[in-house]
Design a protein around this nucleic acid. Structure first.
Lengths: 244, 244
DNA sequence: CTCAGATGTAACAGAATGTAAAAAGGACTT
DNA sequence: AAGTCCTTTTTACATTCTGTTACATCTGAG
C-alpha cells in the first residue's frame, strides 16, 4: 500500500462521458494516477493487472448489474470500492455496502465530497494494511511522540502522565496530519484541506486558532514551542520525535 | 451452484394471484427461470425434482402452516428460502429464521427490494457452496465487539455480563450498520438510508436520538464515548474492536 | 530600528450535537 | 372504536464545537 497520491491508481467506471471526464480531471488534479472505462467488462482482471487501488463504480451501468460487479470484485480482491448511485436507489446503496462496497456517493454529488471520501477510504485501507502486516489489531495502531500518544481509532490523546482526552474533530485531524508529516512545513492551505472540505482564504484564521488550541492541550509554550513550530509566512511544522 | 440468472430456478409459493403474478413477472424480467404454485403440497419433492435453487414462500398459506413447511424444507434440502410475511408477524418472522429460512421480507414489500435480497442470498449460497460449508453459517452472522454480541436474527444485544436485550428495529439497524463499518465515519444521510427509506433533512434529529439511545444501552458515556464516536459536522463512527 | 504584515489568542456568535419529554404512529387487544 | 403498549419522530433546551473578530504581540525586510 502506498501513501503518496502519485503512487495510487484509481479506476473510474462510468458510462456517461461528462461525468467521467469530470471525475478524471478532478482526481488527476488531486495528484492521483487515474484510468477510466465506460464498461465493466473483465473488470476484475483489469484491476488485477493494472494494480488498481480504488474503483469508482457507477452502479447503473448499461447491461451489467452494478451489484453483481461489486460482488465479483470483492470476492477476489481487496480493492477499494466506492459506488456512485442515483437518488432513488436506496436499496442498492444499502445492499451494495452489505456486499462489500466500502462507501458510496449519491448523484448528483459534490466532487469535493467524493474526493474526501476517497481519501478517507485510502487511509482506512492503509491502516488496515499496516495493521495486518504487523499482526496488530486496529486499535494498536497508535502515534506516539515525546511521551504523548494519539489513538487515531478512538481519536483520543493521552498525555505523558497518562491523562486521556478526546479531541474534537478539527483538532484531531489537524494533529494527525501534522504528526503524519514530521519535519515538514505544511501550509495553511494543506492543513485546511486535511481538516475540511473547504477553501482557504487569506484572512482565514481558523487554522491558527486550532493550532493554538492544540498547543495548549499539548502544553506547548507558543513563544518557544517544542512540538508544533511556526514557519513564519509559510505554515506550521511538527517537530516531535515520533516513535518515542 | 450457478451464477448466471438463466441457470437459476426460482419457485414462488403464494396463494394470492395478484402478488404471485407480480413476483413471477418481476423475476422473469430479471432473467431467472421461474416456476409458481399456490400451495405447499409435496413442496420438498417438487423442489428436489425440479432442481429449485430458491423458494419465495408466503408464510400465511391457507391450510398449511408456513413455519412447518420451512422446517420440512430445511430438514432435507439446502435450498434458499425467503419468507414473505405480513406486517404483524414479528414472532413468526423470527421463529421462521430460527427454523432455517435464510431471509424474509414483509408485506407490502418493494419488488425491487425482494429482488435484491434474492440476489444477495443466491450470492451467499454460492460463496458458502464454494467455501465447502465449513463451520455453521448461523453463528458467523453474530456480530461481536468488546465483549458485546449482536444477534441479527433475534435483534438481540447481549452485554459482556451476559444480559440480553431486544433492540427495536431502528436501533438495531443503526448499530448493525455502524458495526459493519468500523473506523468509518458514516454521514447521517447514510445512516438514514440504512435505517429506512427516507430522506434526511438538515433539521432531522432522529438519527441523533437513536445514537443517544444506543449509547445508553451500550453504557457509552457521550462525553467520552468509546464505541460510537461523534464526528462533528460529518456523522458518527464505530470505534469498537470487532471480533472480540 | 521601524513598520507592515503575520501570528497568538480571548471572546463571542452561530452551528451542531446530546437528550429529555411530548407528540405521533402502528399494531394488537378489549 | 377506544385503549394499551411499543417505537419513532419532533420539539425544546442545554451543551459543545467551530469559525470570526478584535486586538496584542511578534517577525523580518528594508
Amino acid at each position: 500500500m502506498k501513501t503518496t497520491p502519485a503512487d495510487i491508481h484509481i479506476l473510474i467506471v462510468e458510462d456517461d462521458l461528462a461525468s467521467r471526464s469530470l471525475l478524471v480531471s478532478y482526481f488527476e488534479n488531486a495528484g492521483y494516477r487515474v484510468s477510466e472505462t465506460d464498461n465493466a467488462d473483465h473488470l476484475a482482471e483489469r484491476i488485477d493487472q493494472d494494480a488498481v487501488d480504488l474503483v469508482l463504480l457507477d452502479i447503473s451501468l448499461p447491461g451489467k448489474d452494478g451489484l453483481t460487479v461489486t460482488r465479483e470484485l470483492r470476492a477476489n480482491s481487496a480493492v477499494g470500492i466506492i459506488l456512485v448511485t442515483s437518488k432513488g436507489d436506496e436499496i442498492d446503496r444499502i445492499v451494495g455496502l452489505e456486499l462489500g462496497a466500502d462507501d458510496y456517493v449519491t448523484k448528483p454529488f459534490n466532487p469535493r465530497e467524493l474526493l474526501v471520501r476517497a481519501k478517507n477510504l485510502l487511509w482506512r485501507m492503509f491502516i488496515a494494511d499496516t495493521a495486518k502486516r504487523n499482526g496488530e489489531s486496529r486499535s494498536q495502531m497508535i502515534y506516539s511522540f515525546e511521551g504523548w500518544q494519539l489513538d487515531p481509532y478512538k481519536r483520543q490523546l493521552t498525555s505523558p502522565e497518562g491523562h486521556h482526552e478526546r479531541l474534537p474533530e478539527g483538532e484531531f485531524k489537524l494533529l494527525q496530519t501534522l504528526v503524519n508529516h514530521p519535519g515538514q512545513v505544511l501550509s495553511r492551505d494543506q492543513l485546511m484541506d486535511a481538516i475540511h472540505d473547504r477553501e482557504w482564504t487569506p484572512n482565514d484564521r481558523s487554522v491558527d486558532v486550532l493550532i493554538g488550541r492544540l498547543r495548549r492541550k499539548l502544553g506547548d509554550n507558543p513563544s518557544n514551542p517544542q512540538l508544533i513550530l511556526t514557519a513564519h509566512g509559510a505554515g506550521y511544522m511538527f517537530a516531535g520525535n515520533t516513535g518515542s
